[in-house]
Design a binder for these strands. Structure first.
Lengths: 253, 253
DNA sequence: CGTTGTGAACGTCTTCACAGCA
DNA sequence: TGCTGTGAAGACGTTCACAACG
């Protein structure tokens, strides 16, 4: 099968690096918090600390968007919020459907972080006839039979899959056939999609496994080799979690 | 704020690259599926397809673990499952606590992917007194007041935070003070932790925002510039989601 | 002969360090 | 003077392509 490059073959020098795109939501969140506290301007140093990255990286990231700062001063908070929102496409309304309303699907339906970012849960879909009509997060669950109609009626282009692994590919195929071109997959399966469709995956157990790997290493160091030891009290604001590997990462923000 | 290097300063040539570590769980999942179908051996090409990566990358990844394949034949499925499990530290039992038993916390408690990978939900903790004693996923919820005692009694070193954003840092501080050294954070906040503590974050709305970015670009291309057009029917198994910026990486230390 | 394991080339991301500007 | 914006250097990750070997 194809390699699964991360989007745009390589062409287009006008493109914003993927690594930068993945951090924009982080900056946006920090900026929104500053905006709510009515902070007018912020330096790259301050904003970087709030977002959990270093300032050089942040300035480099912003340089891909344009020159939105003022030397000697910093960035205008409101203006940056707008520019990043626009770049991310959050100034428009994105109707999304969530398929698979189990524990996770229900949690996603109730998640406030979606609505606050221009995402609107247009419909909840489940294969269990007993669920049909029941309201979850104030939205009545609809049956899988109507999936195609729902996608079309609501002009949905983003779908969230929260079904068991066994149903994911089938649901994915139907979503894509109905016109969905972006999928957020919570099922522990590799989805196969046609070119032009983006998939991001979030796998809860993968994250834990990565933590276990590092945890295991720590245990093997007991008596710390170097001076300081594990009791050093410096604080980090680390957000970096390194490369993903592919999905990598959905990381929800 | 600190730089947030991806772990181990740079020392140790014996280290496995973070990008590789992040993919090991993917390989493990694919191998487990093969194992259940009693497939004895698999080639890098086949396994790569099942895991959604390309075969060169897979072989390179495995080369960091050792020479576990047989030229002309492929890899022994059972043997690889064992080696990867060991490398990830999954041959031991990891008791974890989940703090914040709302919709998401409950979904995590019910998530089967944990138990099947050596992770044991040792306790569920919530700040709401009304929740205390109520069973979720068969485990009685305990009150936050007992957090330190619970961590100690169960020898917990991995904690999952599924609280609202406002409570996350405080919970994090208490977990760390009680001895937790790895944290999986679902709250949309940048956690500040001492050196030696790993944090990985999963942010649901960030993933959607990244999808929205690409979705927006697609819309701006309507009439495809190049020959093929968006209707090309080749299938990908794409898993790549590019760099995270956050998710993907543990980082800390 | 087929497939692994890997050096080398290449591309991407991060960090440094400082020129340029308000 | 202070902070942004960025070229250049370096670290890291991916892909190529083929020698090595069962």
């Amino acid at each position: 099968m194809a390699t699964g490059r991360t989007h745009r073959p390589a062409t287009r020098s006008r493109g914003i690096p993927e690594a930068t795109v993945a951090r924009l939501p982080l900056y946006l969140r920090a900026l929104t918090a500053l905006s709510e506290r009515s902070v007018p301007t912020v330096s790259s140093e301050e904003l970087a600390a709030a977002a959990g990255v270093n300032s050089a990286k942040l300035r480099k990231d912003f340089s891909y968007l344009g020159s939105y700062g003022t030397r000697g001063v910093g960035y205008d908070v409101e203006y940056l919020v707008y520019q990043i929102s626009r770049e991310l496409g959050l100034t428009q309304d994105w109707p999304v459907v969530i398929v698979g309303i189990g524990n996770l699907g229900a949690a996603l339906a109730n998640y406030g972080g979606f609505a606050s970012r221009g995402f609107r849960v247009a419909a909840l879909i489940d294969a269990d006839p007993a669920m049909a009509g029941k309201p979850v997060a104030g939205i009545p669950v609809q049956h899988t039979d109507d999936l195609e109609q729902i996608i079309e009626d609501n002009g949905v282009s983003i779908g969230v899959i929260a079904t068991p692994a066994g149903a994911a590919q089938q649901v994915c195929d139907r979503l894509v056939a109905a016109g969905v071109t972006s999928i957020l997959n919570f099922a522990p399966t590799v989805l196969s999609v046609p070119d032009g469709v983006d998939v991001r995956k979030v796998d809860l157990s993968i994250e834990l496994q990565i933590l276990a790997f590092h945890e295991q290493r720590k245990a093997g160091e007991e008596a710390t080799p170097d001076g300081a030891g594990p009791a050093a009290v410096t604080r980090r604001e680390s957000t970096d979690q390194g490369p993903d590997g592919d999905v990598p990462a959905v990381m929800p923000a």
